Computed example of a mutant assay.
Amino acid sequence: MVTRRRVLATGLTTVAAAAGTTAALRPMLTATSGSAAVIADDKAAAVGRPDQEGRPHQHGVGAEGATPPLFDEVYRDRRIQGFPSDTEEGVDLYIDGRPLELMRRVDGSWISVANHFQPYLTPLATARGAVDVIGRADLSMDSGHHH
């Protein structure tokens, strides 16, 4: 039997659960992907997107078509680059000039094809995690989605 007390109790429980979930997810949902990223120095040479063979295009500062990276670093002897993108994820990742597929999860964290089971807070952390997983192996040049 549906009573007024049961309806109110269910409603309050639902509100409490939603509020708790919001409070728990707030840090991840409000974090920006650029907060932990290493921003390229304006005085350094800007590096463009890699070409079809995975070789990075080298552009000088101010060169036409140069896309400055969101981050560009060497981690465990692997070059990690992230560029702004028009994709749903908003960033393209490259490890040694080869594309790394990146996916944004509903909770705001990131995963890569190198490790679907470990979420990270930023694209840079995701790329570092991928380097940890793949070691010295090369990524495939095929960057198609397989889902």
Rank of each mutant, 00 (worst) to 15 (best):
I80L: 15
V61L: 13
G82Q: 01
R55P: 02
S85I: 00
L70W: 04
D96L: 04
D72Q: 13
Q81N: 15
A63L: 05
V91R: 01
R76I: 06
Q81S: 14
R78Q: 15
L70C: 03
Q81V: 12
G90K: 00
D96P: 10
D92Q: 07
P69Y: 09
A63W: 10
R76G: 06
R55Y: 03
F71E: 04
G65W: 04
G62A: 06
T67G: 04
D92I: 00
D72M: 11
G62W: 11
D96T: 09
P56L: 05
G82T: 05
T87S: 15
R76F: 10
E88P: 00
T87H: 01
V91D: 00
P56A: 04
G82L: 04
Y94Q: 10
L93G: 08
A63Y: 08
G65A: 11
E89W: 00
G90F: 00
Y75E: 09
D92F: 04
P68S: 15
E89Y: 00
D92Y: 05
D72E: 13
T67H: 05
L93F: 02
A66Q: 11
R55K: 12
I95M: 07
F83Y: 14
E88S: 05
F71Q: 02
D72S: 15
D77Y: 05
G82R: 01
P56R: 10
Q81Y: 06
V91T: 14
G54A: 04
P68Q: 14
D86K: 07
P84T: 00
A66T: 13
Y94A: 08
H59I: 06
P56I: 05
R55Q: 10
P84A: 02
G62H: 12
R55C: 03
F71D: 06
G60D: 10
L70D: 07
G90M: 00
D86A: 10
P84R: 03
E89Q: 14
R79N: 14
E89D: 04
G62K: 10
H57Y: 06
G62V: 12
I95Y: 05
Y75F: 15
D77N: 14
E88V: 08
V74F: 07
V74N: 07
G62P: 12
E89M: 01
D86I: 01
T87P: 02
E64R: 12
T67Q: 13
G54W: 07
E64W: 11
H57G: 10
D86Q: 09
P69R: 07
Q58G: 13
D92C: 01
Y75V: 09
R79F: 09
G90E: 01
H57F: 03
L93W: 02
I95A: 09
G90T: 02
P69A: 13
P56S: 04
G62E: 13
T87N: 04
D77A: 14
G90D: 01
E73F: 06
T67Y: 01
S85F: 01
G62S: 12
G60I: 11
R76A: 11
R79I: 07
D86R: 08
G65T: 09
P84F: 00
A66L: 09
G65C: 08
L70P: 04
I95V: 14
D77R: 13
V61R: 15
G65R: 14
P84D: 03
L93M: 06
L93Q: 03
T87K: 04
A66P: 05
